[in-house]
Design a protein around this nucleic acid. Structure first.
Lengths: 134, 134
DNA sequence: TTAAAGTACACTTAATTGGTGTACTTTAAG
DNA sequence: CTTAAAGTACACCAATTAAGTGTACTTTAA
């Protein structure tokens, strides 16, 4: 029931990029140093943010990263899902084979968990990186 | 960002006990069989539910488990915390040393996460095993 | 006294986490 | 057109956690 370190680093990287003037290309080195993230690990995380359309990169000399959209359009949910994949607070919510009642509608635990997960997803969606800026 | 298997099994065990007539002692064997939980693993989980005051046990011949209180007074949060310990969606919420800004109030990611976690905890608290019974 | 039950604790195997190593590709600048 | 600074790709690794087992023990009704 915990976000992993990669997600935490992703939050910080995006927060940092959101604090730059829009479109400014920032090298990994700078993000890593400023946000106290192991540089090599950050470099491994960034591509998933790119695939998710959250940041863009520029390769070659003077390259780096910049946000692909306005910070207020980047939610916590976007970042979590980009790094960890779709949210599932219990594996029975992903794959029915893990539901001892095989076939969700009869399992009341399943229903309650789906409920709770729904609220969590909404809440993650309601926080964005624009709000964090002030 | 997922509950572990032990917690899932605990939910099912409690759901099963909640479906029995109040105070009836049910042996681990029966819970395991009915809820499709590996018996030995269940036996390892139950003591944490006992420590948390959620179930009680009777040892010896004819022994087993029964709920320590009314199902409606057992929340999902109670069970999660009994099995997994206090909830923390990010380690920076538990131990400041993991917050790159050392000292929470200045870190905006930290604040947003604390917010989200608060909602999650409330939601877990709002579901109980009495509601599941009908 | 016996056998059925829960308890305790050590162990095991596999997966996941958090990183690193090494080689590669892209690209601005000289 | 070469160089060096940057990101990318993919394989590897050590430590931790997850999920489950083995074995010995304690409690207790019959």
């Amino acid at each position: 029931m915990i976000l992993n370190q990669a997600t935490d680093y992703a939050f910080r990287a995006i927060l940092y990029l959101a604090g730059q003037t829009r479109g400014k290309v920032v090298e990994a080195q700078a993000i890593a140093r400023q946000q106290v993230v192991p540089m090599r690990f950050l470099l491994k995380i960034m591509p998933s943010l790119i695939k998710a359309g959250i940041v863009k990169s520029q390769r070659g000399v003077g390259g780096g990263y910049y946000l692909a959209k306005d910070p207020k359009d980047i939610t916590f949910l976007d970042v979590v899902e980009a790094v960890e994949g779709p949210i599932a607070i219990n594996r029975c919510l992903v794959d029915e084979k893990y539901c001892s009642k095989h076939g969700a509608p009869t399992c009341q635990v399943h229903r309650a968990l789906a409920d709770i997960q729904g609220i969590l997803v909404l809440e993650l969606k309601s926080h964005n990186f624009g709000d964090l800026q002030h």
